[in-house]
Amino acid sequence: MIELVRQYWQNYLYTDGYQFTGLVITLWLLVASIGLGFCLAIPLAVARSSSNRFISGPVWLYTYVFRGTPLYVQLLVVYTGLYSLHFVHSHALLDTFFRNAMNCTLLAFALNECAYVTEIFAGTIKATPYGEIEAAQAYGMSKYKLYTRIILPSALRRALPNYSNEVILMLHATTLAFTATVPDILKVTRDVNSATYASFQAYSIAAVLYACIVFALVWAFRRMEARLLAFLKPQGH
């Protein structure tokens, strides 16, 4: 048991210079993937909600492909499939990028996250009450101001409950990172299990760590919802 605790301390919580492992890697994958996915999803959601098929069509195709195929397959395509292409490993910059397991994992996670979040945001943009749009147009707002001041702030607030679920699902999806040899929680758990043969204890500790992260995320999103969605609650007389 002492050996198990020592292994977990070294692999989950201990940091040595810039070599972060275990828990920190999982949190980094989560934050980086949802951050990149969020930033990319906002303009794509605006395009996806457009009535012009030449604008919304390519975005629909992108979200259809990434939501219609397993993330595990997408990770394998990015990590091993793309590097097998001649123009990738013959180009110095692409070769350097795709030889790094963390880069490939983060790219696959971010593209997958972006596809789901794009559809979530596009749905709330389309559901914006038309009265708000008419009021903004009557006030003389340009289309840019209409989106930045009325449509997007309202849509992002209303998308918060669905977006929080997607963030939690992304945390669960980070367990696939071990297939690309990224030392996340699950990869470290497998290494600890191989070193100690304490399978129940090893995977139980990993489950507790994931549960703690989920509880923290749920608490944070509930606080955000209470603050940002307070205007949707029925007002007492």
Rank of each mutant, 00 (worst) to 15 (best):
S164M: 09
Y210S: 05
L229Q: 07
L30E: 08
Q7H: 12
I2D: 14
V218E: 09
R48C: 05
G57H: 08
L27F: 06
V31A: 15
F200R: 05
G123K: 06
L40G: 05
R223D: 10
F20S: 09
I185E: 06
S84G: 12
T196H: 00
L186F: 12
E134N: 11
C104Y: 01
F87G: 02
L13G: 11
A230M: 04
V46L: 10
E3C: 00
I42H: 05
C104Q: 03
L160C: 07
A108Y: 00
F54Q: 10
A198Q: 00
E3P: 01
N103V: 10
V46T: 07
R227N: 13
Q74L: 07
S164L: 02
C212K: 06
V88F: 03
G236K: 13
Q235P: 08
F87H: 04
T69F: 04
L106M: 06
L44Y: 01
S90H: 11
H237G: 14
G131Y: 10
L94K: 03
S154D: 15
L76V: 05
Q7G: 03
G123E: 07
C114I: 05
T124Q: 15
L232G: 06
H86W: 05
L94F: 08
S199P: 03
W60L: 09
C212A: 15
C39Q: 12
K143A: 13
V31M: 11
D95R: 14
A207F: 05
L36V: 14
V117H: 01
Q10G: 13
H91L: 11
V73W: 01
L232H: 13
A47E: 05
P183W: 03
A45N: 08
P153Q: 11
N52P: 05
Y18E: 14
I168T: 09
S84F: 11
G140N: 13
E225Q: 13
Y72H: 06
D16Y: 07
F109M: 10
F121L: 15
F87K: 00
V218L: 10
R227T: 10
R6K: 14
F109S: 01
A195P: 04
G57T: 09
N103K: 00
P161D: 07
L85W: 11
Y8L: 08
L82C: 02
Y197I: 02
C212V: 15
A226P: 04
F231K: 09
I150P: 08
L4P: 00
L160T: 13
A127H: 08
M102N: 07
L29F: 03
K187E: 10
C104T: 12
V117S: 08
Y83T: 09
A110W: 02
A180L: 10
T118M: 02
S204M: 07
Q201A: 14
W9M: 12
P58T: 03
R53I: 11
G35I: 00
F20A: 12
S142D: 14
Q19N: 15
S33G: 02
A198T: 00
A127L: 05
Q201G: 04
L152C: 13
K143R: 15
L176I: 07
